[in-house]
Design a protein around this nucleic acid. Sequence first.
DNA 1: CCAGACGTTGTT
DNA 2: GTCTGG
DNA 3: CCAGACGTTGTT
DNA 4: GTCTGG
Length: 224
Amino acid sequence: MCGRFALYTDPLALAKRFQTDNVPDIKASYNVAPSQTISIVRQENSKRHFAFARWGLIPSWAKEINTGYSTINARAETVAEKPTFRSAFKHRRALVICDGYFEWQEQANNKVKQPWFITLKDKQPMALAGLWEQWRGSDGSEIESCSIIVTSGNELMQNIHDRMPVILPNQHWESWLATDNTDTNGLQTLLTQYPSEQMTAWPVSTVVNSPRHNTEECIKPVSS
DNA sequence: CCAGACGTTGTT
DNA sequence: GTCTGG
DNA sequence: CCAGACGTTGTT
DNA sequence: GTCTGG
């Protein structure tokens, strides 16, 4: 799955890579956790914008912000059907932007899990397949929230974890973001494993375990 | 009909 | 053990 | 995802 | 909001 990531590329470079008409006002973060505000890219009238959303999708019909169940990820296999996600899947897709994500590898003999950091070999920031939703509280407050779609792990990931986020290659950004695209069958074919040979992974310190630690040490390689 | 769930992961 | 907070 | 709290009373 | 379970 995908429960933690990092985003530290310069905002101007992000705007250039994702061809947005605004530059996100963000600082480098090496340890982004669920419930925090994350950077997403959406499209309106064929123009791309950076926006922000709370990580953990709140369905429009939810009574409380804390839904009591985990919506930080949506399974690619079922996202089109699940009541919590299907409306967003059809109408409110986004790119969740990160430089790399973390997965925790189970260890034999009940030893402490080993965290890994996974990036693209070309060091470019990546676009994860995301969904967003708007929620209105009874007091009139509004919150935009989002979820990251996950699928089975590719060859690189297999030894680390059996699930991984869906990473969209450049050539699929347009059809994923197009608001007039409601072909859910076609959209689902975009939710595939990114090729292992274009990715790389290294073990990192358990410093990353605590969301309170937000330094470069979180992504620094250690011997496993 | 109304009430209650609506999720992913990992472990058993 | 289970829920909340980050 | 992992870390940290998980309770009541009374006092500051 | 919409589906499932009773």
